[in-house]
Write a protein that binds this DNA or RNA. Structure first.
Lengths: 352, 352
DNA sequence: CTGAAAGCGCTTACAG
DNA sequence: CTGAAAGCGCTTACAG
């Protein structure tokens, strides 16, 4: 079923991309001014009359001219480009990236995205950003060794988002995980739960802190005997597997779950719904992130909100401050989480 | 709760980013050879002894030198960079991006990603790619006017992935939607279903074709009287809403659903599971895409597979062919979908 | 292999 | 506003 449509276009079209595109000189010639003037106009510098500006833009438009950023970067002492490393299939990263664009623009920076993927590790993703002259790096949930990150940060302003690197000389933005977890456990205990199980986030960003905070909060409530941590990670799959493990022994099953993140919580929900359980009638579920998934009305997930827009803003600002030279000491920016009670939590079922 | 750790580092660190980084000249000086030779070595061109190559790389490593791609781009007639426009929160785009990296590398191209987002429309995303000297553009599910796309394609090789632009002079890669839909309907009819409802994909890529194919397939089976199209889009939310609509009249409810894509199917599943229905006991559900979501064991979604790796490969190749000048006629590459029967479809329930 | 040179498309003072 | 000039860090022939 492979269609193949022939076209009547000329044979030269395939080469058009390599024909030189219009340069500043072309625009200058067309308007009848100097190249320097065109440069001024495009950089919004004073020195050209309003009328001239308009004629320049008009000519540029007609020629299809756009400044060559390679040339700009080379000529300018600064590239004004920030690199963002992300995991392309992480929905929370998507939220942050969406927040980065407007803030970066406001600070006068262009954004280059580089994704990690199965065939492309973090080192490779970063290499690409560096060779494209990024002045600063925003790393979303970096998973590299602290030592490597520190080396990077020696060359170029770096901010790590979502993951702490204690003792490492690198700026970071993350959420006060312990506080969020504590609020979640408080909420469940107030509802009457005591058998509260945590599904671990494995190597996911923030997991270590969340696990530790879970244990501490349980102990604080005198529930040390109910501490149960199931292995998991930040995927739906792990939530569903944890659900299967719990469902194997319904009599002693926990009455509430604190998942490692929202995706994990949703996998868990799918599995217990499918098994015919009621949420929160039979079991309560709390997620973590308040990603778009959690908002969905049919999910209506109780969760801990991490503000991606705020994280994006602080991350851009952290790098910008370094680049402007207004700060040189390391900064660890810790955001307050916000517990959001929705429909997946309620009083525990009465048993026996 | 805002920690602020002071560091002992010197005040100059904040400026390090603006200190000039090592250039080819530094490497050449360190090794005691000419810049031209270093250039040769880095481009893997013949003309340097094996021993010299090693010394060059060694010195580069010690200095932390990496080629400045802005300078390379400027000096070379070709940038060897391909731009990819994507919607950062689209999981299917994530799958394709992951497939693009290795193929691009194999063809000798670097990849630049540019995302659309609420504050950043397709025009802006493309502008960024062009100004960074991309030689070719891979547009994932472009949603712009055909006219605009055609204009773009006149300047630079463009391939549209996942969406057809009939009559427009632009290469495209997409799936034979009709075939996939037909297979899905055939499967449901074989199982004994006749009340098969379609949840529409709205403005999503491929929706028009899927909707049309649904109607045609239903008619082919003599089920014209059962044709029912519920409004929707490519999100979980719309699937859940469609479920609510159907659940309002359970007596006359369809026995099977063909969702606009996997995300929509999963929203639908969540809602009916939550309502206590059995899948496929009470209702069968078919998705579309075979995204990672569909694979999840607890979802086990029957769906129509679109091969993202293959789409990625063909897209890169399409652009590369244009750039190499080996093809100038428009090509529409249509991939065969593959129906995948899993656990969400079965015989219809016996009623009344 | 070397070394000098031109060029890629800009920016950035600078004298007028 | 102009116009000539230097420079950003490379690539690319070219004579030796």
């Amino acid at each position: 079923m492979h269609d193949r449509r022939m076209s009547e276009e000329s044979e030269t079209r395939g080469n058009r991309a390599r024909q030189s595109r219009p340069t500043m000189a072309d625009v200058a010639a067309k308007v009848g001014v100097s190249r320097a003037l065109v440069s001024l106009v495009f950089r919004n510098e004073p020195g050209a009359s309003k009328e001239t500006r308009e004629r320049v833009f008009q000519a540029a438009d007609e020629l299809g001219y756009r400044p060559d950023s390679a040339a700009q970067m080379l000529a300018r002492s600064r590239s004004k480009v920030l690199g963002v490393m992300l995991t392309v299939r992480n929905p929370f990263h998507a939220d942050i990236v969406e927040g980065i664009y407007p803030v970066a623009e406001q600070h006068g920076y262009d954004i280059l995205l580089s994704a990690t993927a199965p065939t492309r590790d973090e080192r490779k993703a970063v290499e690409a950003l560096l060779s494209h002259r990024c002045e600063g790096l925003i790393m979303l949930g970096p998973n590299m060794e602290a030592r490597h990150l520190a080396e990077l940060a020696e060359r170029i302003p770096v901010v790590a988002v979502g993951r702490r690197f204690p003792g490492v000389e690198v700026d970071s933005v993350h959420t006060a995980e312990a506080k969020g977890v504590r609020q979640a456990i408080d909420h469940l205990v107030e509802l009457g739960h005591s058998a509260i199980t945590h599904i671990d986030g494995g190597k996911g960003a923030g997991s270590v802190e969340r696990r530790r905070a879970y244990r501490a909060a349980m102990r604080k409530h005198g529930l040390a005997g109910h501490i149960q941590v199931l292995p998991g990670d930040h995927t739906e799959e792990s939530g569903a597997q944890a659900a299967m493990a719990l469902l194997a022994d319904r009599v002693n099953m926990a009455t509430a779950i604190l998942a490692g993140n929202d995706r994990c919580a949703i996998g868990f929900l799918d599995a217990v719904w499918r098994a015919g359980l009621r949420v929160p009638g039979d079991i309560s579920v709390v997620g973590y992130d308040d990603s778009h998934l959690a908002h969905l009305s049919h999910i209506d997930l109780t969760t801990v909100r991490q503000d991606p827009d705020r994280q994006a803003e602080l991350a851009v600002r952290a790098v910008a401050e370094r680049l402007d030279g207004v700060r040189s000491e390391v900064r660890e920016l810790v955001l307050d989480p916000k517990f959001v009670a929705r429909g997946t939590t309620g009083p525990p079922p009465r048993r026996g």
